[in-house]
Write a protein that binds this DNA or RNA. Structure first.
Lengths: 334, 334
DNA sequence: CTGAAAGCGCTTACAG
DNA sequence: CTGAAAGCGCTTACAG
């Protein structure tokens, strides 16, 4: 079946392509009633659908943004992504999601690919290891916003959780419940990922604030696959921690697996609190106390800021970082 | 910053645009070594990136597919979608995901929008209520594959679970464990959604096969928000079921919430088995016995079939349905 | 109020 | 081995 084009419609309606185009773009200002009718009829008769690729080429706008996430496995990522899509759809923008899998090479490939596809802007959960590329986008005045993580010395606006506050909330709650031996486990920090560093930082400050002894053996970071081992070390210390802060959802899951396997009772033998309000927290037994991120708001903000940059053309970042408040969800695991 | 185009490269290298284009498309057959060098140098010097939109317009292929899911909230959906993206990325295709939210109007909008954007094909989890549109795609020889659901009398190839088998597996296991009073709850069937209908069908057959009494009070379908009420009815019957098959992940979650709120012990007071191997099944207490769908394989197959149709141009569907085997994951909830 | 013409940035037969 | 020209399907000043 041959595609019907604007030329076919013009012929059918006995007007010029320009007129059809005007009609399509709702520029009715000077269009005669009868002309409008004719064009409308021709479009319906032929089942015409405009070719957006052609329009994009001319208008230099694809009404599409790219989202490059670091790791799609986090619930945080899926929820934020969902919010971005919702917001964009509301503004008639499409969204292409790519998963960099924490791999800078993949991230590079996606950034280049997406820009070649002429997406109007990019939301990136940066791996942090493509500084030249990030800088180039800045130099090109290309619309970008970072999400979840920021990159040292790259002044791209970033939408972030107040991560220090998140672990402070966790520690405060634990202390209030009478715990003093408190450990924290995060995923790997070898790449200096913002939220992990800041959560450890916040933990340490909170410990000090409460006049507790900061024990560096109580702070562990590792790949998810190694977390069970780290936990094992932790709980076999001479004076093991009595409470654990899980740095994110993946860590929490590993903790829960370990706990189940070793028949440890929560919270009697070990108190557990997780950052990221996992889906099963409320109906798990015991229900898990967590620190929730406002994922929906954060995604919406990122999309809003990006679409704003896109429409303004001027990319001025007088306020590069947006910090969001975490929220304590008290349940039964501490 | 002005975009650098193929014309700039040509000027810089002192060759024609055609030659640059040949180079970009790796048609080196007749290209002189020095020419190649010159072009390469010019591209690097200018930091040239081809404009894929222009290429797409000419080539009538965007190397992008659309995926319209019925409801992004199912883990099945997110996992399958992930598999599709992985497979497509491997073939240098991009993926645009849209969530129809079980709303036929949204589905219609996305199908039209995506086709207008010239995506090369579509994977759809059909709502079932846009028959004319589905038929039109068939008439247009437009590449489509259905996923999770099929639509009566619309011969589009569909990638499906063997749903009857799934509930049979569940019932068989329950019966083997000594249960005879077995109920099933699914999400709403008012729209005749394939998997729900087939799962109820399979349940009924299995019940009969085991010589058990088929009790229609034991079969419930409802929106997620009403499932708690249905459960309440079910368990307050004169002879309530002693085991429940949860028709999908969302139903399972509602069941678990209900169970927790009412302090019902699993499996002592109520055996529970869910279709969809939810993320927390293995470390929940008790660990949940489930029937798993091969989500990764199903997504891969859908993508494979679609890309195949796209490359063949000929859309012949001599084998419209692909059925996948569910797998019983025995744990502690029954 | 409507149309002719140029142009967006590529690709591709075809000529030489 | 390389280039001139046409064309993909639109939009948009501009002329009338």
């Amino acid at each position: 079946m041959r595609k019907v084009t604007i030329a076919d419609v013009a012929a059918q309606a006995n007007v010029s392509k320009s007129t059809v185009s005007q009609y399509l773009n709702k520029r009715y200002d000077y269009m005669g009633e009868k002309t409008k009718e004719k064009v409308k009829a021709a479009i319906e008769e032929l089942g015409y659908q405009p070719n957006i690729v052609a329009r994009s080429l001319k208008q230099k706008s694809t009404k599409t943004i790219g989202v490059i996430v670091a790791n799609i496995l986090h619930t945080f990522t899926t929820e934020v992504t969902r919010a971005i899509e919702d917001f964009c759809n509301g503004s008639d923008f499409h969204t292409i999601i790519c998963n960099a899998d924490d791999d800078p090479d993949k991230e590079k490939h996606y950034i280049e690919m997406l820009r070649a596809k002429q997406v109007d802007g990019l939301i990136i959960f940066p791996t942090g290891n493509n500084r030249e590329l990030y800088q180039r986008m800045l130099d090109d005045q290309y619309p970008v916003v970072f999400l979840d993580r920021s990159v040292q010395d790259i002044p791209v606006s970033a939408v972030l959780l107040d991560n220090e506050k998140a672990s402070q909330l966790a520690v405060d709650h634990l202390v209030q419940k009478g715990y003093e031996k408190i450990g924290i486990i995060t995923t790997s920090i070898i790449n200096h990922i913002t939220p992990r560093l800041e959560r450890i930082q916040g933990y340490e400050e909170a410990i000090r604030k409460h006049g507790l002894q900061l024990n560096e053996n109580y702070v562990k970071s590792a790949e998810p696959s190694e977390i069970q081992d780290r936990l094992n070390e932790l709980l076999n210390l001479d004076t093991p921690p009595e409470a654990i802060v899980a740095g994110n959802d993946l860590v929490l899951i590993e903790v829960l697996k370990y706990v189940k396997q070793n028949h440890i009772r929560i919270p009697e033998e070990l108190a557990v609190i997780g950052i990221d309000d996992v889906s099963f927290a409320s109906f798990y037994t015991p229900a898990i106390t967590t620190v929730a991120q406002p994922t929906f708001k954060m995604g919406k903000m990122a999309a809003e800021v990006l679409l704003d940059k896109i429409s303004k053309k001027k990319i001025k970042d007088d306020r590069p970082d947006f910090r969001f408040e975490p929220k304590l969800m008290v349940r039964d695991s501490v």
